[in-house]
Computed example of a mutant assay.
Amino acid sequence: MIRLSAYIESIGLLGPGLNGWAEAREVLAGRAPYVAARTVIPAPASLPPAERRRTGAGVKLALAVGLEAAAASGRAAATLATVFAASGGDGQNCHVICETLASEERELSPTRFHNSVHNAPAGYWSIATRAMAPSNVLCAYDGSFAAGLLESLCQVAVDGVPTLLLCFDTDYPAPMRDVRPIPDAFGVAMVLAPEPGVRTLARIEAQLSGAPASVLAAAQLEQMRVDNPAARALPLLDALARQRPASVVLDYLQDVQLQIDVTMPNGAGESAP
């Protein structure tokens, strides 16, 4: 069976009650209580004012977690190959477009249109960071995080370059929420490298598995995992926060999941109780 591996250097995270990786890892590791709250997405200060005004929640979320992860890795954001993964586009923007098309005035704003395409966050990323490194954009419904992680691991293995994975999903308004009930936004980013370094958090090795997906012991965090496709990353993030060797299984396809074996650099965490 094929196994793919890489070294995680850094993480960016925003979700309900989880404001950045430094705060979230304390909650995931059980060192701080989880306090439910709506996701707070900052304005993308890295964009020029004109582009900043045009961005929706998905773009803002992707930029926020991506820039957090890039900064924590110590690498220049513009130099990182990127993989963007999301189960859908900007739900609010899609809602407005549908309302417009269902009205008598059916002329669409060009801004609305270009923000509706699935690779819009990748375009805004290149503007914000002036990146010209390779970039891939993909969608695999509820398995989008696992698909994005696999693609990132492939890039690291084949091209031998550090790669930034950005996975994010935002909520939909009614009536689309009735068929796609994502209640709030969640985004995660991580820098993967082919070799260990001074900032290495863990080594991961991935393979396909028929085992069921891992669940979280904390009920509110488990509900978050189920509610948002991007939050399917939480079992892996939980293992990284606890800094202990672990094996977790992430949702991927209907009959195939993704197993991730996590080991710590230099044996860190091996003797933890």
Rank of each mutant, 00 (worst) to 15 (best):
I41N: 08
T79S: 15
L28N: 13
P110M: 06
C154P: 06
D261W: 04
P134W: 00
A62P: 03
D251N: 13
G148H: 12
P212V: 14
V248C: 12
N19A: 15
I2E: 12
H95M: 09
P110A: 00
Q92G: 15
L164S: 07
K60F: 08
P33F: 01
V158N: 13
S5I: 06
L258T: 07
A45V: 03
H114W: 13
P181M: 08
Y34I: 00
C154M: 12
P235N: 07
P42C: 11
T39S: 14
A185I: 08
W21D: 02
G89R: 01
K60L: 04
V117R: 12
T129N: 03
V198P: 14
M224S: 05
V179L: 14
P16Y: 00
R244G: 05
P212N: 08
Q257V: 07
L258M: 04
V191L: 07
P49R: 11
R3Q: 14
T163P: 10
L208F: 04
V158C: 14
L165Q: 02
I2H: 06
A86L: 04
E222T: 11
E151V: 03
F113H: 03
Y141L: 15
C167L: 02
G160I: 13
A231K: 09
L258K: 10
W125K: 04
A131I: 10
D255F: 14
V156I: 05
I127Q: 10
G197T: 15
V117G: 09
V59F: 00
D251K: 13
V156F: 01
R25K: 03
P162T: 05
I127N: 05
T55P: 07
W21N: 01
N115L: 13
C98K: 10
R199A: 15
L250C: 03
E23G: 11
E26Q: 12
S271I: 06
A78Q: 07
D261G: 07
V59Q: 00
I127R: 10
I204Y: 09
S10D: 05
T82W: 08
A78C: 03
C167E: 00
V156T: 04
L149D: 12
N119S: 04
A174P: 09
R177D: 15
C139K: 07
D169T: 00
I182Q: 01
G267M: 02
Y252L: 15
G88W: 06
V256K: 15
R31A: 11
A29L: 03
G89I: 01
G143D: 02
S103K: 02
L47M: 10
V96T: 02
E222H: 12
A120G: 07
E9Y: 01
L80D: 13
S103I: 04
